[in-house]
């Protein structure tokens, strides 16, 4: 195995994506809205398609905006259906995102002659190609550094999410913990909800090219859930989730490079491997977490039982 500069960029892009996603992801997990990430990431398809049909370019800023708007709309529609129709929120989410996905699929197929937008590309992305798309060149201490567009975009999204979490930390926290309390304290819980949804939508859309719209769910949810098993403090959880996500990006790419060789295959998708890596981390925490791990808990229960028997 040889490690090229490209590989470093792939890991950097993956890590930026993971860190950007982990911050809103923690709040999704705590607010029991994990599937909203899934819903939004599927539902952005028509937004991407419409913006693409209008501008004819995949790199455009308008495409970004279009998709993000549809992403937030997913949350709005879901809330409407579950409030007005008294439908279980999971079901209303399912109805909204499948419908939007179907619209997106129809648009893409209708436009297949005019433009080249492969739905597969939207779903699982192409992180291997991302480093080739250079946005700008920086010179740092005499060394020329070619910054890929994906790194720039995801870096900005990460910064955006980080600033929101820093500035609205206590508001997000209280709105996640107890929306009614938040409202009585004059914090608009609904506004905080949509702020979070905007973060998720923006992150998803920014990530779809790099890791694909479905794998970003792994980045949103899995490191956050892992961190949730490891700590009881929100601040620590945010940092841990971001760190774990970044580590999973590195481990995922390494696995994508090594694993196919060992098994006798040609190559494997890095973005898929990154999702698998987050899963492996979760599995470890699920079993071994110091307080909430399955093995740890079993041992504690045994010990209690044992001490009962002794006394």
């Amino acid at each position: 195995m040889t490690w090229y500069a490209i590989d470093t960029w792939i890991v950097v892009i993956g890590a930026l994506c993971a860190m950007a996603a982990a911050l809103p992801g923690c709040f999704l997990v705590l607010r029991k809205m994990s599937m909203m990430g899934d819903a939004i990431s599927h539902a952005v398809l028509p937004g991407l398609a419409i913006a693409f049909l209008v501008t004819g370019s995949r790199a455009s800023f308008s495409m970004f905006i279009g998709a993000a708007i549809v992403g937030v709309l997913t949350a709005v529609f879901t809330q409407w259906i579950s409030n007005w129709g008294k439908v279980d929120s999971g079901a209303s989410m399912g109805i909204v995102f499948t419908t939007l996905f179907a619209v997106g699929l129809l648009l893409i197929v209708q436009a297949a002659d005019h433009v080249d937008l492969d739905p597969g590309c939207v779903l699982y992305g192409a992180i291997e190609l991302a480093p080739w798309d250079i946005a700008t060149t920086w010179t740092l201490g005499g060394v020329q550094l070619e910054i890929p567009r994906a790194a720039l975009v995801l870096g900005s999204v990460f910064l955006f999410n980080l600033l929101i979490v820093i500035f609205f930390f206590k508001e997000l926290k209280i709105a996640a913990f107890d929306p009614d309390l938040a409202t009585t304290q004059g914090i608009n819980a609904n506004l905080m909800h949509y702020l979070l949804m905007t973060q998720v939508a923006v992150t998803t859309v920014a990530s779809f090219e790099a890791v694909g719209s479905i794998i970003v769910i792994a980045m949103l949810i899995v490191p956050a859930a892992t961190a949730h098993l490891l700590t009881d403090r929100l601040g620590v959880m945010l940092i841990l989730a971001a760190g774990l996500g970044a580590m999973a990006a590195g481990a995922g790419h390494l696995m994508a490079l090594l694993l196919p060789g060992w098994l006798g295959f040609e190559s494997a998708t890095t973005s898929g491997m990154m999702a698998v890596a987050t899963g492996v981390f979760f599995l470890l925490a699920w079993m071994l977490a110091p307080r909430y791990g399955l093995l740890t808990k079993t041992l504690t229960t045994k010990r209690i039982r044992h001490s009962r028997e002794l006394s």
Binding site: S34, G37, G272, G279
Partner: peptide
């Protein structure tokens, strides 16, 4: 971990695994 997060985890990790296997 609550229901919704458990589903999200399985969904995304399995799908990621699926993409890997298909690419193989």
């Amino acid at each position: 971990i609550k229901d919704d997060t458990a589903m999200g985890i399985v969904l995304s990790v399995f799908f990621g695994g699926g993409v890997v296997v298909l690419s193989l």
